[in-house]
């Protein structure tokens, strides 16, 4: 918006290039609102600019790797799996993951040869962030939120997943206070393989955990 302005009257700046050159450079009303709110809160001492930076770093560090480790452990350790299905919070905390983000209940639902689980949030975009990080863009989309509870097989097909007719599909609608995570089935013949088999999408339920090709 302003790259051709004369900046001689200003202090020199180190970064003249945008941090994210991909379309993050339009100053919309909502972006202004974020800047204004953030600046006011910093001035009021609610938090510092460095707290914001550290929070973004923390968000970036919270990836589906956490969920993968939980699932991979459940695959090899029946006792751990039993705890995970009974008290997921405790099972995750025992691997050292902080679950303090929100005071929410986490429920893990297990896929079997006869039951396939998938998660959605029709009311908002509630998601097991403590284990998977920020939700993917499609999870927040109107189409996914509207349709998953109505025609799950059609939606799953759009993700490339076709399930046999004799497999029951269970859709779990999350709320602010109750989040779900899918425990995918371990692909056959993968004993000794790492948690890389466990993808984010397999823990949402729009894909299966698969053997490496």
């Amino acid at each position: 918006m302003s790259e051709h302005h004369d900046h001689d009257h200003e202090a020199p700046r180190r970064h003249r290039h945008p941090l994210q050159p991909d379309a993050d450079d339009t100053l919309t009303y909502h972006r202004k609102l974020e800047i204004a709110v953030r600046e006011l809160l910093i001035e009021k001492g609610i938090f510092t600019a460095d707290d914001v930076r550290a929070a973004i770093e923390e968000l970036d560090g919270r990836t589906p790797d956490r969920g993968s480790r939980v699932v991979a452990r459940a695959w090899v350790d029946p006792e751990y799996k039993a705890l995970l299905l009974k008290d997921a919070r405790k099972a995750c905390e025992s691997l050292g993951f902080d679950m303090d983000l929100f005071d929410v209940t986490l429920t893990v639902v297990e896929n079997t040869p006869k039951v396939h689980n998938v998660i959605v949030c029709t009311l908002c975009s509630c998601y097991p962030r403590m284990l998977l990080g920020l939700p993917p863009s499609w999870y927040k989309s109107r189409a996914y939120r509207s349709r998953m509870v109505k025609e799950p097989r059609v939606v799953l097909k759009e993700f490339g997943l076709e399930l046999p007719e004799d497999v029951t599909v269970r859709v779990h609608d999350s709320t602010a206070d109750l989040r779900y995570l899918v425990l995918p089935m371990r692909p056959e013949g993968t004993a000794g393989m790492s948690d890389r088999l466990v993808t984010r999408d397999s823990m949402i339920g729009v894909a299966l955990a698969q053997r490496p090709r």
Binding site: V120, T122, L123, W138, A143, S146, E158
Partner: peptide, 10 residues
């Protein structure tokens, strides 16, 4: 939004 009609998922 649950159950509403909507287009394909991006």
């Amino acid at each position: 939004l649950g159950g509403e009609s909507a287009g394909p998922i991006e």
